[in-house]
C-alpha cells in the first residue's frame, strides 16, 4: 500500500466528520432533551388546530403581518370569530412568555426568527 498512513488518516478524519453529531451529543449529553413550550392555563381554543400551528404558525404570522402592515386590516375573521391580527395582543395573550414558549422550540430546532428585530421584545420577570 502506497502512502498507507496518509490514506488511513484521511479515512479516519472523514469518518469522524460525518459522525460528528454522535460525538457532539456524547460530549454534551443533551440528546434526550425535549422542548416543552408553556401556555397559560385555562385556554382551550387557538386560531387554528395545534397541528397546523406547529408546522405553519410562521405562515399565519406572515399573512397577518401583510394584512396589517400592507393592507391596514387590523382585524380578521377566523372560524367565525373576529381576532385582532397581532402577535403581541392576540397570540401572546395565551402564549404569554416568549422565553418559555417561543424560544423553547426555536432554540431547540436552531431557528432564529427575526420577529424581535422590529418589535419590542416582551419583558419577562
Amino acid at each position: 500500500m502506497y502512502n498507507g498512513g496518509k490514506i488511513i488518516l484521511g479515512l479516519i478524519i472523514f469518518l469522524l466528520l460525518i459522525t460528528l453529531p454522535v460525538w457532539f451529543n456524547i460530549a454534551t449529553g443533551t440528546s434526550k432533551y425535549k422542548p416543552n413550550p408553556k401556555i397559560l392555563p385555562g385556554q382551550t381554543e387557538c386560531v387554528a388546530p395545534a397541528n397546523y400551528m406547529r408546522t405553519s404558525h410562521m405562515r399565519l404570522l406572515d399573512e397577518w403581518r401583510d394584512e396589517v402592515v400592507r393592507h391596514q386590516r387590523r382585524y380578521g375573521e377566523i372560524n367565525g370569530k373576529i381576532y385582532e391580527l397581532s402577535l403581541s395582543n392576540t397570540c401572546m395573550k395565551c402564549h404569554s412568555n416568549k422565553k418559555e414558549f417561543c424560544d423553547e422550540c426555536h432554540n431547540f430546532a436552531d431557528v432564529n426568527p427575526y420577529c424581535w428585530e422590529c418589535h419590542i421584545e416582551p419583558k419577562e420577570k
Partner: peptide, 25 residues
Amino acid sequence: TRIDIVAVKELGMGLAGFHPVIPDN
C-alpha cells in the same frame, strides 16, 4: 407542505444518540 420541525429533530437526535424514537407528527 411544511412539517413539525421539532418532531424531525426528535427523530434526528434519537438516531444520533442511539435511542431512536418515532414522533407522531
